[in-house]
Nucleic acid binder design. Structure first.
Lengths: 341, 341
DNA sequence: TTGAAAGCGCTAACAT
DNA sequence: ATGTTAGCGCTTTCAA
């Protein structure tokens, strides 16, 4: 950004017309003579004129920028969400400003302030784990900035939401295990504090019951990461000898469990089947490859962006509508870890 | 963004003072009376006043935004680069606007246009694979937008650069294999069209020669992804029976090779050692875990941002300096795949 | 068909 | 110590 930038004034001066004429000519205004239009556009091209979005924003009070607050980019699910967001945003002429909360509440508050200062038109958010207080979002809402939460949604706030069908995904995954002949299924679960953790547990339980199997609370063990899974899975299968399948709350946990099982000399999937949740790249890299539940991160991002842009368009015309919640369906991806030869 | 936003004018009106007084009071200008300052800041806080960055940008011709063009976010190296960039940028009061090229030249050109329209203060770029023509970047330079390339740098342009020490990383990795007793080392290589591919090949060769081993060109096989590695590695080790180690151009390729080797019934690392490059999360998930060369993505991002911000500060004071190139050192991370028991 | 003027929110000379 | 004015780049009434 510098003195070398061409403005409408520059073009006007060189052509001996007024800035307003140039402005109108450039937008193909009907009341400008074809001749003027031609001269103006030609010179504009020659000089490489590009409208200054900053000036446009100041006038229109629209920045054509949407803000994104995300816990961590270095995570396959979230980075695929970003790709989805970008795709839709760019189609509609919006740009995306991304902030990471790094799972920190303080950082998240700073992020909202930064995004407000930059007057983003709307906001997409997946909550930091730490966040319990939603005042910073309520503030944005006071300023009429529409917010759409996705995945880690905010239950205390009236906003649009996009969530993954965690219950359905878990249900389908566990049912697949049962139909494949596995009977005693361990669930390495997420936190019951998180909605997604509870939903997956419920999907697991209902799948068992719907298929005439009994739920054993001892087989629901909180464990949501690779290291812990690697440490404790061996002991758990010793304690519960009949376990013939493991359903983990995410891929990394599943992979930790897989390694622990192999270390015990048990075969995957012949002795014990393993099922993940996320369907990140890692699922294809393990040996055996990991069956998993695809969360369609890209679709989540797209849907959230569509909702937000819809809200932005409506905002100009109508009253507040009631918040919407969209559920993105999951897909079971069966690979080697649940397929007995 | 809406009518509910508080401006300096609003505060001025309510206090019966002029906007400039408010502006000065808010920035703790020495010529404003302490009393006025107090009243102004208090009301500002009460009303939740936040300066409109858009207006500031228009005036100062500085947006405090840096643009980022990256091939793909869904890639561990790049997402860790982003984290590094954000960290430094935020420290210095800058925000980041991220665009993905998706490896497409056309997209990259659009990205630069979007970033220019938004008058970013500077640009960080890692090139799309397709890109051979650099006119779009030259255009930005004409407008005095500083650019720093990282990792996939642009050799045809005078800019600052941050690169990974691919040569050194490859050298160290291969030397580690040799010192561990491996003698016939296959290299699954990157493209010789890419600088990083060539550098890693050279590191591989020099490590062999420096340790008194002969370079066999047949043992340098272009193969830079999981699927191909999985397909061809088996045949390669059949054709070259003595191969006792594989050095792959990236982790995914290494993991594909590892799986192929295991499928042949050969033990990793006892029969054949495997070494990756990247040190992404996947390296810790395989069985056995994968030795790899850490590229320090975060550090690359930080360094690139530091260079850019330095340039932005200098720009105000001095003439063009000669472009700088910074090399980020790699680190060898030894895990099970190269450690004979 | 075109131009002049005002204003988006802010700041910084230049008054006073 | 504070107010007035002009201007960043653009658009849009209103006037000609």
């Amino acid at each position: 950004m510098s003195g070398t930038n061409v403005t409408i004034k520059d073009i006007a001066r060189k052509l001996g017309v007024s800035p307003s004429t140039v402005s109108r000519a450039l937008k193909d205004h009907p009341e400008i003579s074809p001749k003027t239009k031609k001269v103006v556009t030609e010179l504009a091209n020659l000089l490489g004129y590009k409208p200054n979005e900053i000036a446009l924003s100041l006038r229109s009070k629209k920045t054509k920028v949407i803000g994104l607050i995300i816990p961590e980019i270095v995570h396959h699910f979230f980075s695929s969400v970003i790709s989805g967001i970008e795709e839709i945003a760019i189609e509609e002429g919006y740009n995306v400003m991304i902030f990471q909360s790094n799972e920190s509440y303080t950082r998240e508050v700073l992020n909202t302030q930064g995004l407000y200062a930059n007057r983003v038109d709307g906001l997409l958010v997946s909550l930091a784990k730490e966040t319990k207080n939603y005042e910073h979002f309520r503030n944005l809402q006071k300023h009429e900035v529409p917010i759409v939460f996705f995945d880690r949604i905010c239950e205390g706030l009236k906003t649009d939401r996009v969530i993954v069908d965690d219950y359905g995904g878990a249900f389908e995954a566990v049912e697949h295990l049962i139909h494949s002949g596995y009977k005693k299924i361990l669930h390495l679960s997420g936190s019951r504090d998180l909605l997604i953790g509870r939903n997956r547990i419920n999907g697991y339980k209902d799948a068992l019951e719907d298929n005439g199997l009994q739920v054993d609370e001892n087989l629901v063990v909180p464990c949501d990461n690779y290291e812990t899974a690697l440490q404790i899975t061996g002991d758990i299968i010793d304690m519960h000898p009949g376990v013939d399948a493991i359903f983990a709350v995410n891929d990394f946990t599943a992979i930790g469990a897989m390694k622990a099982v192999k270390k015990k000399g048990r075969k995957v999937p012949d002795d014990i089947a393993i099922m993940g949740f996320t369907n990140g790249i890692s699922a294809t890299l393990t040996d055996p490859t990991l069956s998993s539940v695809d969360q369609h991160g890209t679709e989540v991002g797209k849907e959230a962006t569509r909702l937000l842009l819809k809200r932005l368009k409506e905002g100009e015309l109508t009253e507040d509508h009631t918040p919407q919640t969209r559920v993105v369906r999951t897909d079971l991806v069966v690979r080697e870890s649940t397929t007995r030869k």
